[in-house]
Design a protein around this nucleic acid. Structure first.
Lengths: 340, 340
DNA sequence: TTATTATGTGCAAAGGATTGCATAAATTAT
DNA sequence: ATAATTTATGCAATCCTTTGCACATAATAA
């Protein structure tokens, strides 16, 4: 068992307070003598002392820990976001605890419960769901929260996300400029912020171009690859199939690719493809995949900055940040010629 | 601020002990009256009571938390391992804290320190380094540990990993059978368990086939994609370049692909490629990438099972588990004809 | 009726660290 | 020589929960 301040105090013959002060660099402030200092430090080392974060957190009413909840750790977008968040948080002296809600609101709820019980100093959440009563509760408990990627406009909580509408506009306009008019959209989970805003961008791009919206071309229901695979297969079977597909997320695009391969549909010759999210491997595919890149690092930086501000300054007004997406044009879109 | 047992006790007129008993389902055992029970539960709900995990952990001397440390969260292999670990741990009633050591032993050390301070009940570590004195310390502190993926044979600690030697043998033999004799190996971080064992497999496959080992074809020094990119470029410039490359990890393979694309080297026609690790996107590349698959789910299951056993049973003998790798033959290897 | 058991609840001691306040001794100022 | 500081340290409360032990009352057994 690990030793405690008390052990050190007893063995060196000083008080617990003194030991605490020496070990946490308050020696200056409390004017501990050099002699005591070295004596205590040596003993701490000999006994392998290690502060008990539980006791400290309990006493200090803060843990220097931030909770992070994402819908799917293994989704490259989120794992990169986590990585960046980790770096930023470390700079600020925070540790973090990650939860994977597995796109399941029940797990998300229990993750939040668990994190609040652990008394984290703040939360960064990419929520799965449409409902946000549980997020509201965090606010009510006055725990700083920042929502990322998937936000609720109606909710009075800080948020950072990419401008999804604009991202979709970029992608779909790119397809339109290449001559496509039958453009399908394979959605993610309907009702989520990310999905609805991306859908909105898709629709307004078509509308702006005077292309009527065909509801048969709006398909799918979650962000996983299986969804992309199945919906692509179905789209290809339509009597009047699309010439281009825009997918709402990177995993969906992978599924779409698989379906195309199975059906010997060459990309971009027989079908063009653009996706939201730009995973590392997008440029390594061949043809490389045109994709809407989210500024992952910036999202993480902003999120941490906002969280930090709110921890220090709980009553500031709500801030909502939209970051600029970027279309990376690669090789998965073919120019087609309209038949007039 | 969140309310405490004391608040509830005061407002309902019972003692703190009773409140605690009611709220944690010891009512049966302690024979709390139905009346008190409902009264307390109602008040807890009204006040939005939430147990303080710090105080509980401090008192109970356990946290029901497990620490996980990996070298790179954004590496698909690790993010999938984490995802599986998460599921397994949840089943057992454990939460977990993930750290990303960023392939940096200093960060790994501080992560361990931090986790021990938090009094986690156990640790799952994929260590970055060659040195293991810091892991030894965990053992000395009698905290259950399981090493995954990157283990130390000399260290008396439970471990689970894939049989790397065998995995490399499968991959390299596959290349040899296709007629390749100039097979390069782009390594990961030298000195790490994963790398050394994979290298060993590579060498013995060549040796078994009577192919002499050309040290110029053993290159590289870390698991990131940039390494794959640079080393591939250099390999292609050799006066006598390899006809096949075997990479030690998925990101390295991505880098290699990028280099090939830049140099207009078609895979598999001009160069064959096989990689260790089989990320989700391997089969979506075109040509799809032949790869050595690690049983990710099984690794996670075993790791959690072993950790659990050790938590319950600290003095059991060390166990070391090697899991079977599997070669997924896809489209990145071409058969070549020897010129006799 | 007395002894025993069951029922329902409270007291108080951990668990380990932090920190405001107090104090004794040693310096320095007046 | 006395007062005012400074130096160096200790006391004890506090953070919140859990839990062994004690105790009072009620019910049951002998």
């Amino acid at each position: 068992m690990s030793s405690t301040l008390k052990d050190i105090a007893e063995k060196t013959g000083v008080s617990i307070s003194t030991v605490s002060r020496v070990l946490h660099d308050n020696s200056q402030k409390y004017k501990i003598s050099e002699e005591t200092k070295t004596k205590v430090k040596q003993m701490a080392k000999d006994l392998g002392y290690r502060v008990n974060a539980l006791a400290r957190g309990l006493r200090q009413q803060k843990t220097c820990e931030v909770g992070i909840i994402v819908p799917d750790i293994s989704n490259p977008f989120f794992s990169e976001v986590i990585k960046s968040l980790a770096g930023e948080l470390r700079k600020k002296g925070y540790n973090f605890i990650v939860y994977d809600s597995d796109e399941d609101i029940t797990i998300e709820r229990s993750a939040i419960k668990s994190l609040l019980e652990k008394r984290v100093d703040g939360l960064v959440i990419a929520s799965v769901g449409q409902d946000f009563s549980h997020i509201q509760k965090i606010r009510d408990a006055e725990i700083p929260v920042v929502m990322i990627d998937r936000c609720f406009d109606e909710l009075d909580v800080d948020s950072v996300s990419v401008d999804n509408v604009k991202g979709s506009l970029l992608a779909v306009n790119h397809l339109i400029e290449a001559g496509h008019t039958r453009i399908a959209f394979i959605q993610g989970l309907p009702g989520t912020y990310a999905n609805e805003t991306r859908l909105q961008g898709y629709k307004s791009a078509l509308r702006d171009a005077g292309i009527s919206i065909d509801e048969h071309l709006i398909v799918g229901d979650d962000f996983r690859s299986l969804n992309g695979y199945l919906e692509t297969k179905l789209l290809l079977k339509l009597s009047n199939p699309p010439t281009a597909i825009f997918t709402a997320g990177d995993l969906i695009a992978l599924g779409a690719l698989e379906a195309c391969r199975e059906h010997n549909i060459a990309i971009p010759d027989n079908l063009s493809l653009v996706t939201f999210d730009d995973p590392v491997f997008a440029s390594y595919l061949s043809p490389s995949l045109s994709a809407v890149e989210q500024p992952v690092t910036k999202i993480a930086e902003m999120a941490v900055a906002m969280l930090y501000r709110r921890i220090k300054n709980p009553n500031d007004g709500r801030r909502k940040v939209l970051l600029e997406p970027k279309l990376n044009v690669r090789g998965s879109v073919a120019r087609i010629f309209k038949i007039d």
